[in-house]
Design a protein around this nucleic acid. Structure first.
Length: 678
RNA sequence: GCCGGCGUAGCUCAGUUGGCAGAGCAGCCGCCUUGUAAGCGGCAGGUCGGCGGUUCGACCCCGCCCGCCGGCUCCA
């Protein structure tokens, strides 16, 4: 008997009946047989489904197959390797800490982790020991074997029963309660959907047995040496629920080759160097103090950057038809009770008293904005009414989550509320979606991911209204042919939202912008407009933020550009270095000329002179470390020719006439040109 | 909030198995007048995160608290 399979290039391959993926590889060549770690198989009967299977998995007639190897850069290969690495790590930990119970050990981007319950606490110092034991397991070259067991047999393996050996040859009574729970869940899930209760797949390498879907490397030595490293320890709740016991999570990273691992570790180090907290301190932009954890302090240069961001933001809002407003930070608690924040958000709010009356510090800007709306009668002729606010909000975040500018307890939302008629809603949402992309592009973020979040458990408003609002958001995205991810139950308590995530140069994504449709708040705070029919109508409200938080966006910018900001954002754009004291007067005149040109063009150009008694080399080094885009060295030659020696972002560009340099600088800043990020 | 780790000068870090606390950089002063990433010399700088305890004696040992870092959960 033979079976026929199809290879990726379309060519057929004939194999003996019962042949495995590895056999297919062997039929192609011995080198491939050795390298094969798994297969991608598409069955003829089910052409839409491609399964990733073990090298030992049997093939069936008509399958289309691809051999997965660790050579090349097959993402499936890295994933399989990491998954096996997590098993090997769990095995090593159980060997070193008998009685350890292993819970789950998935792969993550660039690595893997395993959550375990350990009989004694471990420290980072133990990671080296664990790695050593892992290396031993690798060198023992244990075959990794798959078993398919009926539920009762699987429960006997992982349950707390009498130790022994089962019919399958697997050990019994391993006393792994987390695995028992997971198996029970599989059964419950199957029963709930009415599906047949599945067989349980289990993997074994040596004495270690784990519940797992697979696939895995065929044997532990395929993991290789110098290809994995344990990176950190953390606590994690069993199933991510803080009511459950806390487990110890051990993180590791693994790559198919040593070189890739080394490159990754190097990239990590680079990321550490461009940490915005470090850049903020080194460039004297902002600081944090024990006296106010989570509350950033912005220094003069930090405010230069802040103002550059906000000046641009304001100008664009004027163009887009917004008016700017400002509302108080503290308002009566009663307002927050009416708006629904008291019921839905009070754990995150700060409260205070004024003259014995209860007040709250605002966590959002909308109720204040609504009071402005209510300050006079509104006509349909006023709509859409777009009111933007750079509103400083305070939110009580749990102490463990604070992180530089990324997670703080006060931040400035670049908020806006658009009041419009139901008929105008779709067009207004569309306008915001386009505005958002325009703003991101200006800051150098072209790659934007979009998510649509729907009604959460804790919410206000009727079903019809939610459905309507969710429909509008989905229609706009589809009308713009925008790909988006649906996030059920993740909306704000008052309405569904579209979230915008920007991708930075290091591939990380950040949620920034959000658009939220709200029928509830206008109702709660009872706002209306007079229609053409002379009747009162309820407007719809759109909440939106573009950058999200000015503070956080600043942090993202700093990391995206590694501190080398576009010139239009740089807190110090030009630094003039006179070579000797006799050039000081000329240096000062260069500085004044740059500043004057800025004023002339209605731009703020930050130019200074560094005439400290330090060597030229030293002052260049300092300016370079301060990430000043343009260093102008002036000596006898420049004074004579009315020129400047330009050093642009670390590169000596030679001397140029001063007027020419200034003309280019003004154009660069005015057009907000972007450098390469990175 | 929870788990793990950490806290010595502005920054980066040594150090003492319990006996007067150290370096480099930054800062200040002086000399040098300099041509594209660190010129030379000097000076100053610390209740060793805070409070309590043990001890003849605590930066070191113990307890509590605060903050920071990495996660979990949450989120702009």
């Amino acid at each position: 008997m033979t079976l026929r399979v199809t290879l990726p290039d379309g060519s057929p391959l004939e194999l003996d009946d019962g042949a495995s993926v590895r056999d297919a590889a062997a039929a192609i060549g011995p080198r491939l047989a050795k390298a094969a770690i798994a297969g991608r198989v598409t069955a003829a009967a089910d052409p839409d489904v491609t399964l990733l299977v073990d090298a030992s998995a049997p093939l069936r007639d008509g399958d289309s197959i691809a051999i997965v190897t660790l050579k090349g850069d097959d993402p499936d290969a890295a994933d399989i390797q990491r998954h096996t690495a997590s098993h090997v790590m769990a095995q090593a930990i159980v060997r070193l800490f008998p009685g350890a119970r292993y819970a789950i050990g998935p792969t993550i981007e660039n690595g893997f982790y395993y959550d375990l319950q350990l009989p004694e606490p471990i420290a980072e110092a133990d990671l080296a020991r664990i790695e050593k034991e892992m290396a031993k397991i690798v060198s023992q070259n244990l075959p990794v074997e798959r078993y398919e067991l009926p539920v009762d047999e699987a429960l006997a393996v992982f349950g707390a029963g009498e130790p022994g050996t089962g019919a399958s040859g697997l050990p019994l009574g391993l006393d792994q309660q987390f695995k028992v729970e997971l198996i029970e869940d599989l059964v419950t899930a199957a029963e709930a959907t009415g599906d047949e209760v599945p067989t349980i797949s289990v993997y074994r390498q040596g004495e270690f047995v784990d519940l797992c879907r697979g696939p895995h490397l065929p044997s532990t030595n395929k993991l290789g040496s110098g290809t994995f490293k344990l990176t950190s320890l953390a606590g994690a709740y069993w199933r991510g629920d803080e009511k459950n016991p806390m487990l110890t999570r051990v993180y590791g990273t693994a790559f198919p080759s040593k070189e890739e691992l080394a490159a990754y570790l190097e990239a990590l180090e680079l990321a550490r160097q461009r940490d915005h907290r470090r850049i903020g301190r080194d460039l004297d932009l902002f600081s944090f103090h024990e006296e106010g954890p989570g509350f950033p302090f912005f220094h003069p240069k930090g405010m230069r950057l802040w103002n550059a961001m906000v000046d641009f933001w304001r100008a664009e809002h004027v163009k887009a038809g917004y008016e700017e407003i400002s509302t108080p930070v503290i308002l009566r608690r009663e307002l927050w009770e009416r708006s629904g924040h008291w019921d839905n958000y009070k754990e995150n709010m700060y409260f205070t008293q004024i003259d014995d009356q209860p007040y709250a510090v605002k966590p959002m800007n909308c109720p204040g904005g609504l009071l402005i709306y209510k300050s006079r009668r509104r006509s349909y002729r006023d709509l859409p009414l777009r009111m933007a606010e750079l509103g400083r909000v305070h939110r009580h975040e749990m102490s463990g989550v604070l992180h530089g500018l990324f997670r703080v307890r006060y931040f400035t939302q670049d908020d806006a509320h658009i009041y419009c008629t139901p008929e105008q809603l779709e067009e207004e949402v569309l306008g915001v979606v386009r505005f958002m992309q325009h703003i991101y592009a200006a800051f150098g973020f072209a790659d934007v991911k979009i998510e649509l979040s729907t009604r959460p458990d804790k919410s206000i408003g009727s079903d019809e209204v939610w459905e309507l609002a969710e429909g509008v958001l989905a229609r706009v995205l589809e009308g713009e042919s925008i790909d988006y991810v649906l996030n059920p139950g993740d909306g704000a308590f008052y309405g569904p939202k579209i979230d915008f995530h920007i991708r930075d140069v290091m591939g990380r994504t950040w949620q920034c912008g959000t658009i939220q449709v709200d029928f509830a708040m206008p109702e709660r705070l009872d706002i209306s407009y007079t229609g053409a029919d002379n009747e009162e109508h309820r407007p719809v409200m759109i909440h939106r933020a573009l950058l999200g938080s000015i503070e956080r966006f600043m942090g993202i910018l700093l990391e995206h550009y590694g501190g080398n900001l576009p010139t239009w954002l740089a807190p110090q754009q030009v630094l003039v270095l006179p070579i000797a004291d006799r050039h000081a007067e000329y240096a000062a005149s260069v500085m004044r000329a740059v500043r004057a040109a800025g004023a002339e063009a209605s731009l703020t150009l930050h130019a200074d002179v560094d005439d400290r008694g330090e060597s030229v080399g030293k002052r260049i080094r300092d300016a370079q470390l301060q990430k000043v885009p343009y260093i102008l060295v002036v000596g006898d030659r420049e004074v004579e020719q009315g020129a400047v020696g330009v050093r642009e972002r670390g590169e000596d560009k030679g001397a140029r006439p001063l007027a020419e340099f200034i003309g280019d600088l003004v154009a660069e800043v005015r057009e907000r040109r972007l450098p390469e990020a990175g």
